[in-house]
Amino acid sequence: MATKSLARQRAMGQTFIYGVLALLALYYLTPLWVMITTSLKPLDEIYGGSFIGLPQTVTFEAWSKAWSGACIGTECTGLKPYFINSILMVVPAVLLSTGLGALNGYVLTKWRFRGANLVFGMMLFGCFLPYQAVILPMAQVLGKLGLSGTIPGLILVHTLYGICFTSLFFRNYFITIPDELTKAAQIDGAGFFRIFFSIMLPAALPIIVVSCIWQFTQVWNDFLFGVSFTSGSDSPITVALNNIVNVTTGRKQYNVDMASAMIAAIPTLLVYVTAGRYFVRGLTAGAVKG
């Protein structure tokens, strides 16, 4: 009797837990659901009152309009050129910040110098610096460099800002790699860069993935730097998305807005789906390594 009621209690507990989890999952998925369904509906149907339900007629018109026809200001080019802008910005920014972060982490752990900890501390400080604090001085610097309002300017900003984080990642990863490895390589005759490229980087694959995902997400999703340092046709997609959504004449085109937002979000989603397991693996790699 007693065991039976215990088993029943446990079953009820489990049902409760899974029920709550399912509800929460639904709650979190609702916006995505609304976005996807709305983006597939014709505008009339949306204004007809159905916001949550399945589309009665499925159309990709809003997607194609968002991609190549929606008006941003006076230009009706859709998101396409801005998507390309973002790609042109995010790829170099991710590669540069990851590469420099790896080099920093390598120097900070394997070629320690007097004051290395202080330098590392100051880099960490950069992680906590709010974006807003650097906007004005950054604008001045970009102006002096002649990079105001350009994509290379944005690449520079994102690289600089990202180095703090990527250096932290790589420093904490490389510190788990025994120093004897560098010593052995030195005795084998390898120099600074040979050790870096032949030994440290291949061993750092998990953290390279982490750094790339992190930087990709940060740079792709950034709005503040984009809106502050670029304008017009040089804007990244986040800024263009804002302009599409906030600047409309006539009826608000919810389906185009939703499709645009989805287009802007797809790259980061893709990155997480394809490399997500490396992300988790990379974050825990330091802990598992003996």
Binding site: P178, E180, K183, A184, I187, G189, A190, S198, P202
Partner: peptide
């Protein structure tokens, strides 16, 4: 520098290059 001293060293943790095979480890130098 170490490489010009004509020495070889065996470490406590072995210090094998983790991403290389045994052959690559031995041939690296």
């Amino acid at each position: 520098p170490p490489k010009d001293r004509d020495i070889a060293m065996v470490f406590q943790s072995y210090a094998l290059y983790p991403t290389m095979t045994v052959r690559q480890n031995i041939e690296f130098g």
